[in-house]
Amino acid sequence: MTLTAQVKKRLVTIALVAPASLWLFVFLVLPFIAIIVFAFGERGPVGGYQPAFTFEQFANLGARAAAFVNTLVLAPIGAAACLLVAYPVAYYLAIKASPQRRLLLVSLVVVPFWTSLLVRTYAWMYILGARGIPHLLEYIGFDNVRLLNTPGAVLLGIVYGYLPLMIMPIYVSLEKLDRRLLEASADLGAHPISTFFGVTLPLSLPGVMTGIALVTILLLGEYLIPQLLGGGKVFFIGNALVDLFLQSRNWPFGSAIAVTLVAVVVVVLLVAMRIAWRIAGTRQVDLV
């Protein structure tokens, strides 16, 4: 009887896990294996893939060093900018807002996800474009101001696009924060600023790290925002991949870059988790 119960339990587990596993295997694991195989191959005479076993593609990664550098600089800066904007919002939502207002505001944070990022980024193209804000500036005497396709526009687009992903995990970790800890800190003589840095911030770090990891990882593959709001003048790994697969059809080199990017993502994740674990104490961490 216990055996059948066990078997039943196992079957239920399998039934629950199977669809997701199958999906991931077919659409994530298999393509990734293909990419790894490609990465050790050669470009065909007119593009595409030609079987081979060579490290040539990886040896050539230096040719896209600028893309890696740009990406590895943009991703943390973008994540940091998101964090700077998101933390006060999350703090207000979780700690300061009244419960009725909180529900409304939290929904507003999520609402932008109802439309695609592409559409929203296009909207920004028009807001920042010559018929948008610069047009209004003409009325107060500033002619031909250019906002679109500047680094500031890219940063704005990134902060705008990824803000909810940063706000939500921080909000959740601040919302879980026991308010009595803040009172205890004040009771023990800590100025509100000391309380923030000594108690609130460290205890919200799991949320902060989740947000940073989430935004950083997505930014490592970002293509759309720099393309639309930056005019494609800054070259990221995403751009390099698009060019290699769709324009110059150098699949093996593109694959090698993709594999390297995945490796970078894994390293970033591990480091982020390690830091969060260390700071927040072992029980608190619920990263990703």
């Binding site: 593009g47 896209r64 390099a240 324009q247 059809r249």
Partner: peptide, 14 residues
């Protein structure tokens, strides 16, 4: 299809 031109473009963009 010239790889040299593809690489040139990549250098220009980056």
């Amino acid at each position: 299809t010239d790889p040299g031109r593809a690489e040139l473009m990549a250098r220009f963009k980056s």
